[in-house]
Design a protein around this nucleic acid. Structure first.
Lengths: 349, 349
DNA sequence: CTGAAAGCGCTTACAG
DNA sequence: CTGAAAGCGCTTACAG
């Protein structure tokens, strides 16, 4: 064993963290070629039972794990999916995130999350990261529409699915909820129950789905000859709803029914009405929300609302990406948001 | 321009998605070497102002983004951090996730999330993924202790930080909350307010922090000569709390105070007590929770509880990882969970 | 400060 | 079915 063996052994650097085993080492131990090792870990590759067994044994012994970075480099498919999302700590979004991450994981994808927070600086970072890590697909769950990020991802050949957005960029899939129908249903419910002094509570953020709920609610009411008082402000949060409730109830002509475009807002409105003004729901004021967050079902609220089809949205998304569908038209879809009838609206007169 | 130019141009495959620009192409356009391009994107590398400018211009024109997969391969640092977490759609965990992902992102790290759901099969997948993508660090936010995943990560030289866990594996950082102190405070609060028939509500999951809260509450009560009725069941969820409340209130000797080890449980208990049994809180029964989730502050609950130091935990974690600290002892820390005094416990007698 | 060269750990035609 | 070889897109000593 002189210095000139043909086998090059890595020099041991005792101070460096224990290295990962490489395919090369596995091959050596198993007495096969590097290619064989590669094949053993590629489903459908042509390899004999025997060789596979030898490779697997050696891999097990060495604690070998295919390096997906290197694999991604060659395959030009990283297996990474980026989820860009703001307000992660919000009931609806965290639920969507839970489903999406679980399903993607089960489909063998790695999910990277990009917090698209409020600060717009974050968006650039998010964009760059998707691109830097060569994600196969990116899913935009929430946040204000960043046309730039969308376009860059598209340009670099990523699949792009947009949730609850308006701007149908060519080459993207757009998944949404039937806000129009839900908003119309809300109006109908109020009218049938005999409520007449209607109000709408929303945030002043220009989110497409919120805008749609607002627009169609107003329209449906208008068609029935009813005007609607509009309250808009802040984020779609409990506090905003609380404030909305206080201000509406202290106005000259307090509403007897309010459609809050979000359950978080609705919970705030409800607490204002009941706890601050001691008015009864649904007798004195009717209330409808949207999302069917967990709290809407809690005994203190028991809110009538519309259920976000989270499960369907998530599985549709994952299927699209896992199949590597080309994102042509036809992949778009609008899901129903079924009414969840609880006790915040009185029965029809 | 015959076929034998020394410059090899990539053959255009019109059917393949538009390729990313490579450093090679940028170098060609800028009229510099590949090395120069690399240096232009490496902070602190020795490169002249002039060259850098040329590279940046070319990169901009080509829409170049450093391929972090390739970079990770060479640097043996991927910039990826894995967050393994179960119950993402839970108020406390989603908040922790929000902070962690935001801070890591600001620190230039890419965060991958591993949904460690209930199904144990997921864990293997999670483990493999951390390893496959050569994450620099993995943070375990929740989920039952998976010794195997921990050990594998450690073995491959990852930084590993464990949140709210018990098993102090050598080589890991353990961050926790002072459950003992909080539990003792809860007991004291009840005693001082004159409550005497105490109950504890918890889940039957063997989560270390839950166990600690239970143990120290019992101990503190015991030291004051008081027994505690224990209710344990299901997940730490609203429904469990609701059930607990119902069962406790219908028992022979209903409690006059309950410490719920989680706000979710506490909200359920509260709704059972108030909405189902029409007993008053805090007059008839006192209630204390833990976590200070958003809902604890909502007007319908206004729950006295202990605040999870989410911000501190997150920034401590990120600092450790971003600095690449070696995870020796000294990095461990126990954070205070300050009492949030609201109205579910009556004032001292 | 700069470039040529070696190498990171894989995959995939290509030729047996 | 199998191996040798080329190549993915980068970084980093090394020698100017």
């Amino acid at each position: 064993m002189q210095g000139d063996t043909t086998l090059k052994h890595k020099t041991e650097r005792p101070d460096r963290p224990p290295a990962f085993a490489s395919a090369e080492e596995v091959a050596r131990l198993a007495g096969v070629s590097r290619s064989a090792v590669s094949r053993a870990f590629t489903p459908g590759a042509s390899i004999s039972k025997d060789t596979r067994a030898k490779v697997e044994a050696a891999a097990e012994e060495l604690g070998y794990h295919v390096n997906h970075l290197a694999r991604g480099l060659m395959r030009r498919k990283t297996g990474i999916v980026c989820l860009v999302v703001a307000d992660i700590d919000t009931p609806y979004l965290s639920r969507l995130l839970e489903h999406l991450s679980r399903l993607f994981q089960e489909a063998g994808k790695a999910v990277m999350i990009l917090n698209a927070g409020r600060a717009s600086g974050n968006v650039d970072a998010a964009l760059r990261q998707t691109l830097n890590y060569r994600a196969d697909a990116t899913i935009v769950l929430s946040g204000t529409p960043y046309r730039s990020i969308a376009q860059s991802c598209l340009d670099s050949g990523q699949q792009l699915v947009l949730l609850n957005r308006d701007d149908h960029l060519p080459g993207t899939v757009n998944l949404a909820v039937d806000n129009a129908k839900a908003a119309r249903t809300a109006a109908t419910l109020f009218l049938q129950a005999g409520y007449r002094r209607l109000a709408l509570v929303s945030s002043d953020l220009r989110t497409p789905s919120l805008l749609a709920r607002r627009e169609h609610f107003l329209k449906a009411c208008g068609e029935n000859g009813l005007g609607v008082r509009i309250w808009e402000g802040g984020a779609t949060a409990y506090e905003s709803g609380l404030r909305a409730g206080m201000e509406l109830m202290t106005s000259d002509d307090p509403p007897d029914a309010v459609f809050a475009v979000t359950d978080l807002l609705a919970c705030g409105v409800m607490d204002a009405v009941r706890r601050r003004f001691h008015r009864r729901i649904p007798e004195d004021v009717g209330l409808i929300g949207f999302d069917d967050i967990e709290q809407a079902g809690w005994a203190s609220y028991d809110l009538t609302t519309f259920s976000q089809p989270v499960t369907q949205i998530a599985s549709w998304t994952v299927r699209l990406v896992a199949d590597g569908s080309d994102m042509g038209q036809g992949a778009d879809h609008v899901f129903e948001a079924p009414l969840v009838w609880r006790s915040s609206v009185r029965a029809s007169a």
